[in-house]
């Protein structure tokens, strides 16, 4: 019985990438549909720049394809792709050498009560003001939907460290946004 592509595991799809043209197309499309969104979301929030995020996403999938064609054995496809994306993003961040401190963050003020859209906008600004490791942990957790354990595996740090990054990061976000949230509640 032929198994539907959508029912195949990531590892099975990865194997299909080294098969004939039809298998390659089916496997690549399915993997793209499953993982492109979360990788792009991660890249978009870490790299900030849309164009850079797109470049990283493209590089990630091309490396996945190359890895499959060189017959590499893969056990954690999403982790593998996120690691590739992460390495690229960190390189970009280093080149950008962007240091935004908590103190000098500027959030635009609004005369009218905040809408959720505006809160989202402010949250993105605040997120960018967090230390890199806290921001990355929150992005992986909230945007890519990873558990602390999965984040720990990708970043190669203990789970307790991930927990601290996420909790401290979110507490800082709350601190930054507190006046605006109060206004929103009013």
């Amino acid at each position: 019985m032929i198994q539907k592509v959508s029912n195949k595991s990531d590892e099975q799809l990865f194997e299909m990438l080294s098969g004939d043209k039809a298998k390659k197309e089916a496997g690549f499309t399915e993997l793209y549909q499953r993982h492109s969104q979360r990788i792009y979301q991660y890249c978009r929030r870490i790299c900030v720049n849309d164009e850079l995020a797109s470049d990283v996403l493209q590089e990630t999938f091309l490396k996945l394809l190359n890895a499959a064609q060189s017959k590499q054995v893969m056990t954690n496809i999403p982790g593998f792709m996120l690691r590739i994306a992460r390495n690229h993003c960190l390189d970009i961040r280093k080149k950008q050498n962007k240091q935004v401190t908590f103190d000098n963050i500027e959030i635009p003020s609004y005369d009218i009560s905040l809408e959720s859209k505006e809160l989202k906008h402010l949250l993105v600004i605040a997120l960018d003001a967090l230390p890199d490791e806290q921001k990355e942990a929150i992005v992986l957790q909230a945007y890519s939907g990873l558990s602390y354990q999965e984040i720990s595996e990708i970043t190669n740090v203990p789970i307790s460290t991930v927990r601290n990054w996420v909790v401290r990061g979110k507490k800082k976000l709350r601190e930054i946004l507190a006046p605006y949230i109060k206004e929103l509640e009013q």
Binding site: S36, Q37, Y40, K120, A142, Y143, K170, L177
Partner: peptide, 26 residues
């Protein structure tokens, strides 16, 4: 407030769709 922040982050992630142009290029 923690729930509000979580929900806002999630809704922001949903809004970040991969541009079609990038998908085509890839």
């Amino acid at each position: 407030e923690a729930i509000l922040i979580r929900d806002t982050l999630v809704s922001d992630s949903v809004a970040l769709a991969v541009p079609l142009k990038i998908t085509t290029t890839i």
